[in-house]
């Protein structure tokens, strides 16, 4: 149930103020919200904190949604706003505080993790490349990784035609491939240069 984003969610009842329905809707969308947060938040901002802020905002404001069909785009807008504004504030505050207590290295070292999840080098490389994609490609590519989300469902959330979503995902994947290829090539070149230098030093 956690990963499903389907038409059976009681969105209308949730908007009308039924707390059980709202909880059910939240359970159905929270992983999807997490994907949007990852696509838009500053790297160092804490995903769980931002999810809690989105949950709070859903509780506070869901009654303002006028039409159940607008719930998904509304939730996406709320999530993006929180990712950008609160994420920026939270990361500034956190970095500042870590510097204050002499942990500046930790403050700048978020590349290898999402939340508290340590990533392998390969996973980090793919994730870094995906997060470096232009925004309009990044979001649908990451959403497609949530297996329950079809092109149609992604199109509904992003308020775009399904064909546009398919094109963006296809191009995004090509860009991802090219980015990783380029990174691999640069790393190999760097290693090769280091090797040459070592041989010269050894021969001198």
């Amino acid at each position: 149930m956690n990963e499903r984003w389907d038409q059976t969610l009681p969105i209308e009842a949730a908007i009308a103020g039924h707390s059980d329905a709202l909880s059910q809707v939240w359970v159905g969308v929270r992983r999807w919200v997490a994907v949007i947060l990852i696509a838009h938040k500053p790297r160092e901002a804490d995903l769980e904190d931002l999810l809690q802020l989105v949950a709070l905002q859903v509780c506070r404001k869901v009654h303002e949604v006028r039409d159940p069909s607008l719930f998904k785009p509304w939730l996406r807008t709320v999530t993006i706003n929180i990712a950008r504004e609160q994420g920026r504030k939270a990361s500034r505050r956190r970095v500042g505080m870590l510097r204050l207590v002499g942990r500046a290295r930790d403050a700048n070292n978020f590349g290898g993790q999402i939340g508290n999840m340590q990533l392998s080098e390969d996973a980090k490389r793919v994730l870094d490349a995906a997060l470096s994609l232009p925004e309009k490609y990044r979001e649908p590519v990451l959403m497609r990784c949530q297996q329950s989300m079809s092109y149609k469902q992604i199109a509904e959330v992003l308020s775009l035609p399904e064909t546009t979503i398919e094109t963006r995902i296809a191009r995004g994947r090509r860009m991802l491939r090219e980015t990783i290829e380029l990174q691999t090539k640069q790393e190999l070149e760097a290693k090769s240069k280091q090797g040459i230098r070592v041989i010269r030093v050894g021969g001198a």
Binding site: S23, R30, A34, G115, M117, A123, V126, L142, C145
Partner: peptide, 29 residues
């Protein structure tokens, strides 16, 4: 290209699946 794209997609899905699992612990009231 197909093989690379397939491998990258799978790696990304794996990372995203693990990363978004944190959402399962975040409830409403």
């Amino acid at each position: 290209d197909l093989s690379d794209a397939q491998r990258e997609h799978e790696a990304l899905c794996e990372v995203m699946h693990a990363a978004t699992a944190i959402a399962d612990g975040v409830d409403l009231p």
